[in-house]
Structure formats: structure tokens, C-alpha cells
Amino acid sequence: MNIFDRIWNSSLGKKYLMALTGAALFVFLIGHLLGNLQIFGPPELINGYAHFLKSKPAMVWGARLGLLACVALHIASAVTLAQLNATARPQAYATKGAYGASTASQYMLPTGIVIVSFVVYHLAHFTVLLPGVNGVGDFSNLKATLHHEQVPDVYGMMVLGFEVGWVVLFYLVAQALLFMHLNHGLAAMFQSLGFRDHVWWPRIQFLARAASVALLIGYCIIPLAIYLRLVGHDYAEMIRFKPKAQTAPPALVAAQGKEAK
């Protein structure tokens, strides 16, 4: 058997895959958060960043395919391990079990499923820009002027998108579950890969908790700040979809793209 078969056909091997793909996805979460925190700067900042990413299709698609592969492996290992685990105890206990286990560790699969469905929604919301899912309108029409160029108005999209209550609620719930998932997963990946001893385990648990709290705060303050009208409210009012684009003032930095051409 070659090494890939050996890894895939063993319960420990699949845990290595879970840990390594989980680590890669965690690194993405940090990068994605840092990118998104630019919403707290002027509109040009995040729009410029988005434009920069769009102008490097090889890099963006490389990252996307890599992430997709990680997600696919992470889910495939999770599902096959969950099947194995489900068959390992054909008859359940009558009494409540899981003595000494943390809540997060028992619900990795459910929290993971919600996170996946959130990711699908998030992609439809801000990447594919499906007009039906955002509760506002067609985001693909939003354009901003950056260095005399028409670019997608990411800032406007976010400030309009996060003024919708149920969208914000879904984002916050997903972030809370992501926190649970990471709080257990970040520490457990060290265990799965064997990087642990009695000295390092408390430190690893502390760092895992700290990192998941940091991500929770970082990802929650974006929709919350916008929903509470603390960020970009004036901008949102300025570009809010109007029946006739001509009525928009000429000083607008962002306008509906089709009319602006």
C-alpha cells in the first residue's frame, strides 16, 4: 500500500488529515479576518484590497482551489470517521454518557454542518452575489470609483448587506458555532498530530481558546458595528438603491454601475 492508502485506511491517518486541513482552514480564517477588518477604514481601503485580489486571478484561484481541497478532505474524513464511530457502539447506554467530555468536543459534527451551510450562504451572499439571498438587492450593480476606475464596491456591499437584521443574526450564530468548533478543534489538532505533552497541553488549550476568542470577536464586530449603524451608515444611505440613478448626487464616490457607465 502506498502512503496515501495507508493514511486513508487508518483511523489515526484520517485524524492527521482532519488536523492538517483544519490547520490550513484556520490560517485562511486569520487572513480572511484581517482582510475584512479593513471595513473599519475608509471605503477606498477595502475596495482597493478587493480590487488587488481580483487583479491576481492565478493567486486567488490557487487559494480557492486549495481551500476547496482542504474543505473536501476535512469533510470526507469527518463523515467517514463519524460513520465508523456510529457503528462502534451499536447499542446506546440508557443513562447519560460522555462523562468528563466538554460540550464542544461532543458536537463537532453538528457545529461543522452549520458552519458549512453558513459558508455556502456566505459565498452566495458576497462572492457569487445572488440577489435573492441578501435581503437588499443586486449587489453586482454596486460600483465605486478607485483611481479613475470602476471597481466593485465591496465597502458598499458590506454596509448595505449587514443592515439586514436576519442576515446579521445568521452571521452571529454561525460565528458562535465556529468559536465552539475552533475552541475544541484547535487544541485537538495538536493531540491528533501528537504534538502534546503534560507541559504543553495547558498552554495549547489556552492558546486555542485565545485564538478562537480573537476570531469570534473579530468576525462579530464587523456585522454588529454595521448593524448598529456605527460604521458606514452615511455611505449606505448615500448609495442605497434608488428607483432612478439620475437622482444620485454627482459627488458620489459610488454609484450604480450600469448607469455610471
Partner: peptide, 30 residues
């Protein structure tokens, strides 16, 4: 089944064997 690092085993072990050993096994098996 496989390990999901819940720590139940360590909590009920009459000899208080530590989860550290599972990490050690993962290392050796790797």
C-alpha cells in the same frame, strides 16, 4: 471508534492514564 479528544476516557480511567499517551501514540504511528 476513532478519537475525538473529548477526554472522557481519561476522566473515567481507574488508573488515571493521561491523554498525553494518545498523542505519543499518534506520533509513533505517524
Amino acid at each position: 471508534g476513532a478519537c475525538t479528544v473529548t477526554g472522557s476516557c481519561e476522566a473515567v480511567c481507574p488508573k488515571e492514564i493521561s491523554l498525553d499517551f494518545i498523542a505519543r501514540m499518534n506520533r509513533d504511528y505517524g
